[in-house]
Design a binder for these strands. Structure first.
Lengths: 140, 140
DNA sequence: CCTTGCACCTCTAGTCGCTAGAGGATGTAG
DNA sequence: CTACATCCTCTAGCGACTAGAGGTGCAAGG
């Protein structure tokens, strides 16, 4: 059981060093034991936890949601209904975001396509921003 | 030329009152004249500017980008190449975001579909988070 | 043994784009 | 004249980090 430094934990988990300390500060990760010289010393389980957190963050889960998911993970007898609900909520959020971004894409494409590369007073980019009524996809 | 209060400006532009003050503070909007009792008094051009800013924010442009766009708008003789570049950069960003969100959607759908609504130790939501190698769409 | 130099420590402040609240002044309608 | 809405300034908070200052620990080379 060799000690894992925070730098090593960072390399193994893909979570940056200051972020690991930040997660400890907000209580997402429990405080590890310390070396004689007061340096953090992690266990393999801490690495798994960090990987778990990183994946969840990559999937856009908020820290509060991750906190709940971690509690669930620690108690395997519990019903996974909460985990399911969190994931479903996240899915709905992602779908909503995709829809708005698609709408934005349409507007931006129209703006860029309409730009004749001339002077600003003929520029559709500026024009559309000044008067939303001229938008391709008027969503107000 | 009746005076426009900040509340009226807010109603007409769709930008919240504290946000208008905030925009003034960061120099997006020039400080308006004041009434005898030190209350802000806006001109119709200020409303147009606020509308411009709101549309740009709705399209996800950052404040710095909007600052540039506003400078361009104020000088109609300039080439619109910068405006075009800003809009194009934004379009590329939006397209990138859509791509990542679609990938997330696939993963989340797999997680949710795999959840048998049993106990946590059989829950795919938790499982996938703990071991990214099991992801439907492994993007590491 | 000693120095070099990197990795570690704590703490504070900054990022972005607002939003909320305190505590007080002004303006308007009845 | 009194309510009451709206306005003012100022500071602090949000989420999820990131950056930097100023100091300590530790392993390897000379």
């Amino acid at each position: 059981m060799k000690k894992i430094t925070i730098g090593e934990a960072s390399r193994q988990s893909g979570v940056k060093v200051p972020t690991i300390r930040y997660y400890e500060g907000i209580g997402l990760l429990s405080a590890p034991s310390r070396s004689e010289g007061n340096q953090r010393s992690y266990e393999p389980t801490d690495i798994s936890r960090l990987v778990f957190i990183r994946h969840a963050r990559e999937l856009g889960f908020e820290v509060d949601a991750i906190r709940t998911l971690l509690i669930l993970q620690d108690d395997p007898n519990q019903s996974c209904a909460s985990a399911d609900a969190i994931a479903k909520a996240r899915l709905i959020d992602v779908e909503q975001r995709i829809r708005s971004l698609m709408a934005l894409k349409v507007e931006l494409e129209a703006m860029v396509a309409g730009c004749g590369h001339g002077r600003v007073d003929q520029c559709r980019v500026i024009e559309v921003l000044a008067d939303h009524g001229q938008c391709a996809h008027n969503h107000h």
